[in-house]
Design a protein around this nucleic acid. Structure first.
Lengths: 204, 204
DNA sequence: TTCTTAAAGCAATTATTATTGCATTTAGAT
DNA sequence: ATCTAAATGCAATAATAATTGCTTTAAGAA
């Protein structure tokens, strides 16, 4: 009798789990050291103690392996804050994002998303769904508090907030500027500001 | 007697020029067909009729060659409009940008920028300097007309405007939406709107 | 036109990356 | 404890990418 509904007994525990964990950890370390361009299955194999053949069989190629590692890394490193004000939330969140996408590991996510084939599309989509599910709360809470227009589309606004961070670090590759972040956050607040109040009118 | 100040006679004309042109054209075609991930020096050599050895000697590797081709392609494809109003300029420019970065050739610029080594940093920087030099005019003209705050930093605003286009096409990989662009442009206009007029006050 | 040599062609070699068939190990069921 | 086959190890092979030494071609100066 089978334990799985699929008809074939899988073995996700034990050795396989250890191998997977060791390989992903090694891949993350390699990405952190050499970035996406320098990722090679042979190096990950050597570092993890798992044979390259096994890695090729499980992940197929370096890009897919790297993508999985980069997604896991991003997951860990970017918690969504809740300071009670959008300005504070964005300063913290976008500041951390800026730092992350300026590390080789952070940068690699983008490149690997591009290089990885369509087989990884669903994994990438799921990643962004989950990330946006958490991060959009910054905007839905702010809208509820009336800090931004109550009709604001949270996902649309979040894209505006994070996009220039990616652009500057990855595409333009302009160096980090300490004064940039505050300016950027003010612009986002302005872009989604609530409709102008009639002067003297305290609340809606 | 030397013709160049460098002390060694170069030969940029004639055959070298033809070879360079043929190789870049072939590289662009390859990028358009297979994207950055599928670019190989061997394929470009076969398509261009130039020996792979010559390509390696001139460009060093596939990433550098591809980057040069992708930069040249972007140069050609994204003219900066001047409709007389920022809204119209942005609709045209960002619309073309959106289409471009959704083609394999357009997408490849980003990946290749990441993969190419530091030796290409100055070429990339020069590219963006030139692009921004042209595109920022949309904002400086709009500021002069009073459509946006006269104190607007044109480069900052331009980054804010183009970033979500890149993010959606390259990072999030969300599909093209016909209704998105107009919404996006309105948000940019709002973000850099001039200070509120005192009602009834016609001009500054 | 002749001459020099930069630049490209060419073939062979080396290095890197990916694949395949078979042996060994071991998770998980009985 | 025993058994089955999923998963990994291993070595050999194939495919692809990059490098090197030498030859040939032809741009550009005289």
């Amino acid at each position: 009798m089978m334990t799985e509904k699929t008809g074939v007994a899988r073995r996700p525990g034990g050795r396989s789990a250890r191998v997977t964990k060791a390989v992903l950890a090694a891949a993350m370390a390699e990405l952190a050291e050499n970035g996406a361009g320098g990722l090679s299955v042979a190096a990950v194999a050597a570092r993890s103690g798992v044979h390259a053949t096994s890695i090729y069989r499980r992940w197929g190629n370096a890009a897919r392996l790297g993508l999985e590692a980069a997604l896991a890394a991003a997951e860990e490193r970017l918690p969504v804050p809740d300071t009670g004000a959008l300005r504070g939330d964005l300063m913290l969140f976008l500041g951390a994002l800026d730092l992350h996408v300026r590390t080789p590991l952070g940068r690699s996510l983008l490149v690997l998303s591009e290089l990885a084939d369509v087989a990884t599309a669903e994994a990438r989509a799921a990643f962004w769904r989950e990330r946006f599910g958490l991060a959009r709360l910054m905007f839905t809470r702010a809208a509820a508090r009336g800090e931004i227009a109550r009709t604001t589309d949270a996902d649309f606004a979040l894209q505006f907030a994070i996009a220039p961070i990616y652009l500057r670090a990855l595409v333009l590759q302009v160096p980090f500027e300490a004064t940039y972040l505050a300016r950027h956050v003010e612009t986002v607040l302005q872009a989604f500001a609530p409709p102008a109040q009639i002067p003297g009118d305290a609340d809606i």
